[in-house]
Simulated scan of single mutants.
Amino acid sequence: MTTQSIAHSNSKLWLAALKPPMYSVAVIPIWVGTAVAFAENNTFNGAIFSTFLISAILIVAWLNLSNDVFDSETGIDQNKAHSLVNLTGNKPLIFWLANLFLAVGILGVVAIAWWQQDLTVIGLILLCCAMGYTYQGPPFRLGYQGLGEIICFFTFGPLGVSAAYYSQTQSWSIANIAASAIVGIVTSLILFCSHFHQLEDDLAAGKKSPIVRLGTAKASQLLPWLGGSIYPLTVLFVALHIFPVWTLLTFASLPFALKLFRHVGENHDRPEKVSNCKFIAVALHFWSGLLLGLGFVLANI
C-alpha cells in the first residue's frame, strides 16, 4: 500500500470517527423548536438561537466522544477501526476532551438562563445530559439493555425541542410537543439503524439492542412502521389544526424514507452492505426536520 493510499485510508477513518453528518441531531431540535416559537409567537432571538445551536453541537460532541470511551471499556469497539479511542490510543485524552466540550456547552445554556433570568432551559438540558449519560455511562449502560432508542426519543424530541421553544418564548405549546414527537421518532431511527451491521459485536458484548432482540429480519420489517409513522402523524396534526398546512412539506423527505426502508429490507443480514443505512437515516432526519420547521416558518410569513 502506498503512502498516499494509507493517508487516504486514515483520513476516511478520522472522518468516520468524527461523524460530521451526525451533528444534525443537535441542529434539528433547536431549529424545529425555534421555528414553532416563531410561528406561534412571531418571536425570534438570534443571540439565543445561535448560542443554543453551538451549545447543542458541543453537547452532542461530548456524547459521541464519551460513548467511544465507555464502549472501549466493555470491548464492544475492539473491531471498530474508527473509534477515536482506537485511533488515538489515548483514552484519557478523549475522556477529558469530551468533558471540555460538555462544560463549554453547558456554559452556553447557563448564559441563556442568565439572559432570561429563568432556570427552566438549563434544567431541561441537564436532564438531557443525564439521560444521555445513562445510555452508555457506568453503572447504568442502559443502551446495553436495549433502551437507547427510548432515551434518544425523549432527549432529542420532547426535552430538546421543548428547551429550544422555551428559550424563545418562556412558555409551552401543544404544537411544540407534537413536533417534538416527530423529531424524537426520526432521531431514534438513526440509532435503531446503526445496530444492523453491529449484530455480532453486540452479541459478543452482551448488548441487547433491538436488533439483537428482534433479529435483523424482523427489525427490517418493523423499520417502515417506525419511520413511516412521521407522515400520518403530520397529516393528523394538520387535520387537528395543531400544525399549519405548510408542514406537509415534510412529505418531500419521503424519498429518503423509502430508500432507507428498501435498502435495509434488501441487506439487513449483510453487514458490509447495510452499514451505511444510518447515514440514509441521518439524511431522512435532516430533511424531514428541516422541512417541518420550514413549514412553521412559512405559515407565519
Score class of each variant (00 low, 15 high):
A81V: 10
L291A: 08
V245I: 14
N99L: 13
L102T: 09
V186N: 14
Y133K: 02
R213H: 06
A7H: 15
F38E: 05
T169I: 01
F279L: 12
Y231M: 01
Y231Q: 02
S194I: 03
I150R: 11
L222H: 05
T88C: 00
A179I: 02
D201C: 00
F70V: 03
F192G: 02
A37G: 10
S173P: 02
L147Q: 14
A39L: 02
F49A: 05
A204H: 12
G108F: 13
L102G: 06
F296S: 02
V25I: 14
A299H: 13
L100F: 15
K273V: 12
A204N: 12
Y231H: 01
L199N: 05
S171V: 00
H197F: 00
N67A: 12
A281W: 09
P158V: 03
L298P: 01
L107N: 12
L159N: 07
S167P: 01
G143C: 05
I59N: 12
A252T: 04
I48N: 13
S171R: 00
I54D: 06
I230L: 01
A7G: 11
P232K: 02
I112R: 12
S11E: 15
N67T: 14
L214R: 08
R213W: 11
T234R: 00
F261V: 07
I48L: 13
T169F: 04
K80T: 15
I76F: 07
G289H: 09
L191H: 10
L100E: 10
K207N: 10
V32P: 03
W62K: 02
I190W: 10
A35F: 12
V25N: 08
I30E: 09
Q145C: 07
A257G: 15
N64C: 05
D118Y: 11
C129E: 13
I28Y: 07
Y133N: 01
T216D: 13
N79G: 11
F243D: 03
G265I: 10
N267M: 06
E73W: 15
A111H: 14
W246E: 10
G143L: 02
Y133E: 03
A178G: 03
I28E: 05
T134P: 00
L249H: 11
N176E: 04
F95C: 00
V264H: 11
Q168F: 03
L199G: 06
A113G: 15
S194G: 06
G132N: 08
N67G: 11
L260Q: 09
F101R: 03
F52E: 06
L240H: 05
L258A: 13
D202N: 08
H241E: 14
P244V: 06
C193K: 01
S5D: 15
P139A: 07
F44G: 07
S288K: 07
I122M: 13
D77I: 09
W172H: 04
F101D: 01
H8Q: 15
K207Q: 06
H241Y: 12
D71T: 08
